[in-house]
């Protein structure tokens, strides 16, 4: 069922697993930023400034990950339909 076309992972499998990956990066990146800020604060004694800065950086990194992931999906779906609908959009990359 999942390895239908000559043992290759089928499209449904790929889409399901891509859908399963989105979202958790946002949470973990935020927590990693928080933890880095907390331990840097303990080490350097600059409480609470580095905590705030690194928490914000973590949130930004999480959003950036989700954005890059979404762009990857978009590029792949454009690759699928590219043959029939021609070039869409003008992404320079």
């Amino acid at each position: 069922m999942l390895f239908s076309n000559q043992g290759k992972p089928s499209g449904a499998m790929e889409i399901l697993s891509t859908a399963g990956t989105i979202g958790l990066q946002l949470v973990t990146a935020t927590f990693v930023g928080l933890a880095m800020g907390y331990f840097l604060d303990e080490w350097l004694g600059t409480s609470p400034w580095l905590l705030i800065v690194f928490l914000l950086l973590g949130i930004v990194a999480g959003f950036r990950d989700v954005f890059l992931e979404a762009r990857r999906i978009q590029r792949r779906s454009e690759g699928d339909h590219g043959a029939e609908s021609g070039p869409r959009g003008s992404d320079p990359k």
Binding site: T21, L24, T28, F31, V32, M36, A61
Partner: peptide, 22 residues
């Protein structure tokens, strides 16, 4: 550099938590 470091360290954490949670 800082953003990429945070997101690279977040990768093993999210791999762990996703598999464990499910």
């Amino acid at each position: 550099l800082v953003l990429e470091t945070v997101s690279h360290i977040a990768r093993p954490l999210s791999l762990t938590l996703r598999l464990f949670g499910n």
